[in-house]
Computed example of a mutant assay.
Amino acid sequence: MLLENRTAVVYGAGGAIGGALARGFAAEGARCVLVGRTPGPLDTTAAAVRASGGRAETAVLDALDEAAVNDHADSVAAATGSLDISVNVITQEAVFGPLADLPVADVARSVAGTVTSQLITTRAAARHMGKQGSGVILFFGGSDGIYKQPGMGSVQIGMDVVEGIRRQWACELGPLGVRVLTLLTGGIPETFPDAPEMEPAKQAIADATLLGRAATLEDVGRVAAFVASDRARSMTATQVNISCGAHGD
Score class of each variant (00 low, 15 high):
F192N: 15
S234F: 09
A59E: 08
I146P: 03
G153F: 15
D62I: 12
A51M: 14
Y147L: 08
A204D: 14
P175Y: 14
V115I: 13
I17W: 07
D62T: 13
G130M: 11
T91V: 15
A105M: 00
G113V: 00
K148S: 10
V49T: 05
I157M: 12
G135K: 13
R167D: 07
M1E: 02
R213N: 07
L34G: 06
G18C: 07
V87E: 01
N241R: 01
A13R: 12
V60G: 01
K148A: 13
T58K: 10
V95P: 02
M159E: 15
H72E: 00
R23N: 14
E28K: 04
A214R: 04
L181P: 02
L173W: 01
G29A: 11
D144A: 11
C171N: 06
I137H: 12
I165M: 14
T238W: 06
G142M: 07
D43R: 08
V220P: 08
D207G: 03
F25L: 14
V178D: 03
A228E: 10
G53S: 10
T45R: 11
P103Y: 09
E218L: 09
G18A: 09
C32Y: 10
T7I: 14
T121C: 04
D230A: 11
A46D: 13
L184E: 13
G153Q: 15
G245F: 06
P41I: 05
E66W: 04
G164Q: 05
P39W: 15
I85M: 01
A201D: 14
T185F: 03
R127I: 13
Q156E: 15
V69Y: 00
L138G: 07
P98K: 14
G212E: 05
C244E: 15
V107H: 00
G164E: 02
L184I: 08
L3C: 06
D230Y: 05
G40Y: 13
R50C: 01
A105F: 00
L42K: 08
L61Y: 00
G19P: 06
R166D: 10
T7N: 07
R222K: 14
G164N: 07
R222S: 12
G141D: 13
H72M: 02
G221C: 02
Q149C: 08
G40P: 08
A112D: 14
N5V: 08
P39G: 11
F96C: 02
G113F: 03
S229Y: 02
V227A: 11
T122Q: 03
M159I: 11
H247W: 06
